[in-house]
Design a binder for these strands. Structure first.
Lengths: 114, 114
DNA sequence: TCTTCATTTGATCAGTTGTTCATATATTAA
DNA sequence: TTAATATATGAACAACTGATCAAATGAAGA
């Protein structure tokens, strides 16, 4: 037991908890989703898309952001497959494509209203 | 109607969605929680505390981080009231103090295992 | 083909963030 | 009181991040 002499107080608890942690890839995947929702500007975009699809310029109007800023944010959401797109001529519509994210949002909305 | 001439395509949809958005304070509050969980190192700490309390040095051992890094992260979690503390002599134990956050985590865990 | 329009992309930059290292603080035993 | 231990705090810094501005791309009409 040469690992216990460095401030390890409760080796049993430590080992049990280490064993219950999800793998690192899972933790990173979870953190990625939380990070996607952690910026207020981007969260507002996701909230705007919860009930119906919108084109980029409508999202910009709804959220009070520039087209460019919205487009950057949408690229992040696209990369994470949180949103999906539908093109209609020159216009691209965005909508939520991830039920899990929608669920997290609804749970969070429900909580913040208390 | 002097606001429609600036690329506003669908004013009806825009107004309806603006009306359905939560207030800015709520959005920021939600984003703060997501941000707290968005860093993998910090998320790992929260995961470690899900089932039982741990002292700082145990958390550090569990998560493979230094005491100092853990302590900084715990300060963030404390500030947001996500964790609570219990002192026992020189030792301070941390545990989760926010059911909503625990729920978000469990939901996320459930989803990532599919 | 050229022009217009909707959107994307890239560069830039100020602000933010997590980790390290050093120091400070609080508790306890001798 | 001093020393040891557990933890918190502060400064520094490299990396990251979101918004702006300019340019590029794609679709459609003339």
């Amino acid at each position: 037991m040469d690992t216990c002499d460095i401030k390890c107080i409760n080796e049993t608890k430590v080992k049990a908890t280490v064993g219950s942690l999800p793998p690192t890839e899972d933790i990173h995947q979870m953190a990625d989703i939380f990070k996607a929702l952690s910026d207020p500007s981007r969260l507002k975009i996701v909230l705007a898309l919860l009930n119906q699809e919108h084109c980029v310029c409508d999202i910009a109007a709804i959220c009070g952001q520039t087209d460019s800023a919205v487009s950057h944010q949408l690229r992040i959401l696209r990369t994470l497959k949180i949103v999906k797109t539908r093109r209609d001529g020159k216009i691209i519509y965005y909508s939520i494509d991830d039920d899990h994210v929608a669920s997290l949002i609804h749970m969070s909305l429900h909580h913040v209203r208390h």
